[in-house]
Design a protein around this nucleic acid. Sequence first.
RNA 1: GUGGGUGUAGCUCAGUUGGUUAGAGCGUCGGACUGUGGCUCCGAAGGUCGCGGGUUCGAGACCCGUCAUCCACCCCA
Length: 445
Amino acid sequence: MAQPNYRAPKGTADMLPDIARVWEHLLLVAQDLFARYGYEPVYSPVFEHTDVFVRGIGEATDIVGKEMYTFEDKGGRSITLRPEGTASVVRAVLEHNLTANGQSTKLYYSGPMFRYERPQAGRTRQFWQIGVEALGMADPTADAEVIALMMQFFEDAGLPRERLQLLINSIGDENCRPVYRDTIAQFIRSHAGDLCEECVRRAETNPLRAFDCKNEGCRTVMGQAPQLRDELCDDCAAHYAAVKTNLDAVGVSYIEDPTLVRGLDYYTRTVFEVQAEGLGAQSAIGGGGRYDRLVEVFGGQPTPGLGFALGFERMFLALQAAGVEVPRPEIAEVFVARTVPELATEAFAITQRLRDGEIAAEMDHQGRSLKAQMKVADRLGAQFVVLVGPDEVAAGQVTLRDMTTKDEQRVDIADVVDVLYEALADVYMDEAEDMLDAIDGSEEI
RNA sequence: GUGGGUGUAGCUCAGUUGGUUAGAGCGUCGGACUGUGGCUCCGAAGGUCGCGGGUUCGAGACCCGUCAUCCACCCCA
């Protein structure tokens, strides 16, 4: 329709089958992989009290400052659609005391997030994320494990490693970061003449983000600034070194990026981001880090935490750019066609009989000609067609057509399911053998 | 919030310096001797040319506005 009465709201999109299939593929890959790493699923509400995000993510962040979908509900409460997952999950963990007595927890979540932004390639107002949160683990092995898990996800999802860049950095903790912040703020003020207005303003709000500025001049100036890696306190430096050692130990390659500063206030020490090819200007496909103070922000006992999140829309773009296809499964193994409209009920009964036998069966519900039904059967990828005609029905039979060989045989209706079991088994055996041959031909087993 | 591009059949797009019944490919539907698919051939359906206003004898094409969409800035997944 050129001018529909209704459209999906700006920044949202309908996930039609070709896309929804990829979503489900990603979800399945994640469920399988994350479980192997000891993570359990959690579903927190899609909206929270606004304060959860304001305090959790940080008042000075762009997310809280201008991107939240906030509204008042009928009870006068300020409610916000979640712009990210970590704050909600940590709130839930605390609310249910999952980290009592020093217990650790590993959780993963997935679902839509909401941010009021101007849409562009790889950025929508409603977007899907999947992420993990690990609470109660301070060791650098945990950092390495979370990062390794994220990289493994990309691999399992079919995204070639060579199209990805893993960037890591340490942004210090409550001891060394404030000192460094002041150092940078000072640096910015003393170079105010050579920096853009935005960066000068950042000196007062969030000086570290001046490193992120795309402006050429700012980049060169900030390149001269003291680097946090040289200013880390002993504990943070040791932790960061150990994270790298552990990544090295398991063969996860990374690039150290001293300018990597994430836009959420809760991060401490380790931060990381993965960039992928083919995403347009929004090249980050996933990211995360450690947040050792976040639980306290919500009033809990000091509890270390860390996690990552990655975006499905961007995964989709990256997979597409890499030429990775998620196969479309056959919709029907068997199509039941009737030669005359009067036999619709008989055809329906047989279709249901097949489905009861767990055979993927389909039939026509539009009263179409036999020829048209055959076309549909072909398009759906049916291996066999069950022909229901007056002659057959009179004899309590149907005609079974093999769509590959075109062989046809009469089968008693009572035996259709069993005959199809065997016929389909043969088909699948042949396919399996072909696959094995293909593997044999290409690599040693 | 700022800037730029684009808006023609279900999809991808053509539509010459404004001129008569708006086109193609794909898809869909039907047919090619009567109960049968994939190839080929033939045919059909389907368009308020985003919307509103203006210029003109005449606008899908030009101007203004508006809406939508895309891309970029910002920031992030």
